[in-house]
Amino acid sequence: MALSIVGVEKDNSGLYAGKLVQEDEVKHGGVPWTILRSTQFHEFVPMSISAASVGPLVFVPTMFTQPVAATEVAATLVDAAEAGPRGRIPDLGGPRSEQLKDLVGSYLTRTRRKKRIVPLHLPGPMGAAMRKGELIPAPGSAVGRQTFLEWLEALGCS
């Protein structure tokens, strides 16, 4: 059983390269397997803000994303483990495709943090995939229920 990332094949560097190696090891490891690819969790937004802030600025890649609740990914993994090895199961994303900058803006507003969002147009294949929405699940994939705003409300950010 392995958890990977939707669109992992779009880049061959960093985390994505590592996830591709992980998937290959699981597939060819000699034991029956299941792989679930998921979009970024809702927690990706505050993590991005923390990692990409410089003083009053937060640098945000131009990116379509479809964030999913970590609890829904965990439940899917448990169900998959209980069902037994099934190869690659349908990708899982959240209920809505959104621009990352809009999610960052909502998070900053609801947590009363003052930062100026600076959009970044990332170069290369990964930047293009982010802008084109290639890191979200294809039609027919599994879809979570909790939206990003519902997640914020559940945290007490209103």
Score class of each variant (00 low, 15 high):
residue 132 K to T: 06
residue 116 R to Q: 08
residue 147 T to M: 05
residue 96 R to D: 13
residue 141 S to V: 08
residue 56 P to S: 03
residue 19 K to N: 10
residue 94 G to M: 07
residue 100 L to F: 05
residue 29 G to Y: 15
residue 95 P to F: 00
residue 127 G to N: 02
residue 22 Q to I: 14
residue 152 L to Q: 06
residue 142 A to T: 09
residue 29 G to L: 08
residue 48 S to C: 05
residue 67 P to D: 04
residue 27 K to Y: 05
residue 54 V to S: 12
residue 117 I to E: 07
residue 100 L to Y: 05
residue 93 G to Y: 00
residue 153 E to I: 04
residue 19 K to T: 02
residue 59 F to V: 02
residue 102 D to P: 00
residue 68 V to T: 07
residue 143 V to L: 09
residue 68 V to W: 03
residue 34 T to S: 09
residue 86 R to D: 12
residue 94 G to Q: 00
residue 38 S to M: 02
residue 115 K to R: 15
residue 27 K to H: 04
residue 142 A to C: 11
residue 84 G to M: 07
residue 146 Q to C: 11
residue 119 P to V: 09
residue 49 I to W: 13
residue 40 Q to M: 09
residue 112 R to K: 10
residue 109 T to L: 10
residue 80 A to S: 14
residue 133 G to Y: 14
residue 50 S to C: 12
residue 143 V to N: 11
residue 77 L to F: 03
residue 139 P to F: 05
residue 139 P to V: 09
residue 134 E to I: 06
residue 88 R to V: 08
residue 90 P to K: 02
residue 26 V to M: 08
residue 140 G to M: 12
residue 143 V to C: 05
residue 117 I to G: 02
residue 45 V to L: 10
residue 52 A to F: 09
residue 63 M to G: 00
residue 78 V to L: 14
residue 145 R to L: 13
residue 115 K to T: 07
residue 59 F to E: 15
residue 25 E to Q: 09
residue 101 K to A: 15
residue 110 R to S: 07
residue 79 D to G: 08
residue 107 Y to D: 00
residue 34 T to Q: 11
residue 58 V to A: 03
residue 68 V to Q: 01
residue 21 V to R: 14
residue 100 L to M: 13
residue 19 K to E: 06
residue 119 P to C: 14
residue 124 G to Q: 14
residue 22 Q to T: 11
residue 112 R to W: 15
residue 58 V to E: 10
residue 154 A to E: 10
residue 77 L to C: 11
residue 76 T to H: 11
residue 66 Q to L: 12
residue 23 E to L: 02
residue 21 V to P: 06
residue 77 L to S: 04
residue 50 S to D: 11
residue 41 F to V: 02
residue 46 P to E: 13
residue 92 L to P: 11
residue 40 Q to F: 10
residue 43 E to C: 05
residue 19 K to F: 14
residue 55 G to S: 03
residue 34 T to M: 07
residue 37 R to D: 07
residue 145 R to P: 01
residue 145 R to T: 15
residue 128 A to W: 10
residue 151 W to F: 12
residue 48 S to V: 04
residue 42 H to N: 15
residue 50 S to N: 12
residue 126 M to C: 03
residue 34 T to H: 15
residue 90 P to M: 07
residue 88 R to M: 10
residue 113 R to K: 14
residue 83 A to H: 08
residue 91 D to Q: 13
residue 120 L to M: 15
residue 24 D to L: 04
residue 71 T to H: 06
residue 58 V to I: 09
residue 114 K to N: 13
residue 110 R to C: 04
residue 76 T to S: 12
residue 61 P to Q: 01
residue 109 T to P: 00
residue 63 M to H: 03
residue 45 V to F: 05
residue 106 S to T: 10
residue 149 L to P: 01
residue 92 L to K: 00
residue 128 A to S: 15
residue 93 G to I: 06
residue 63 M to A: 11
residue 57 L to A: 10
residue 142 A to K: 09
residue 52 A to D: 08
residue 60 V to C: 01
residue 152 L to F: 04
residue 130 M to Q: 09
residue 33 W to V: 03
residue 80 A to V: 03
residue 30 G to Q: 13
residue 122 L to G: 03
residue 108 L to Q: 02
residue 127 G to V: 05
residue 148 F to V: 04
residue 125 P to R: 07
residue 112 R to M: 08
residue 92 L to Q: 07
residue 50 S to T: 13
residue 66 Q to E: 15
residue 60 V to F: 06
residue 20 L to Y: 05
residue 80 A to C: 08
residue 69 A to H: 00
residue 120 L to A: 08
